[in-house]
């Protein structure tokens, strides 16, 4: 079942900046939805190689980037429908790869999604 239904244009632009960055190195990306504490309930952009095949559960796609969650977390996330959006304040406690590129990916309920 798909919970994540895409990227907002703003988030797409941020993803493009990360891809163009020197650190990207051509390796595919994945989003992992995090839970808990300060940086929780946010998409964390990581390498596809950080995903544990056969364990993590794919809960949708954001453009061409697959979105995953821990299976115990995924069972609740899949009830929701959201998109991945971006905000300008890059500060975050996570290791999400977009942070040095001047923004931060966040979850947004599908019906609230802005066309910006």
């Amino acid at each position: 079942m798909s919970a994540c239904e895409g990227l907002t244009p703003r988030a797409h632009r941020l993803l493009d900046r990360v891809r163009a960055g020197a650190e990207a190195g051509g390796e595919p990306f994945a989003f992992m939805i995090s839970g808990g504490c300060c940086g929780g309930t946010n998409p964390v952009l990581c390498r596809r190689s950080n995903i544990i095949d056969g364990f993590d559960v794919q809960i949708g796609n954001a453009a061409d980037v697959p979105v995953y969650a821990h299976p115990d977390h995924a069972q609740y996330l899949v009830r929701d429908r959201f998109v991945i959006d971006a905000i300008d304040d890059a500060r975050s406690d996570t290791f999400s790869l977009e942070i040095p590129y001047g923004g931060r990916f966040v979850l947004r309920e599908l019906r609230d999604s802005p066309e910006v």
Partner: peptide
């Protein structure tokens, strides 16, 4: 580390 789950896992990796 104190923080959220995914970054905790990335740190372990």
């Amino acid at each position: 580390f104190t923080g959220e789950y995914v970054t905790g896992r990335l740190i372990v990796q």
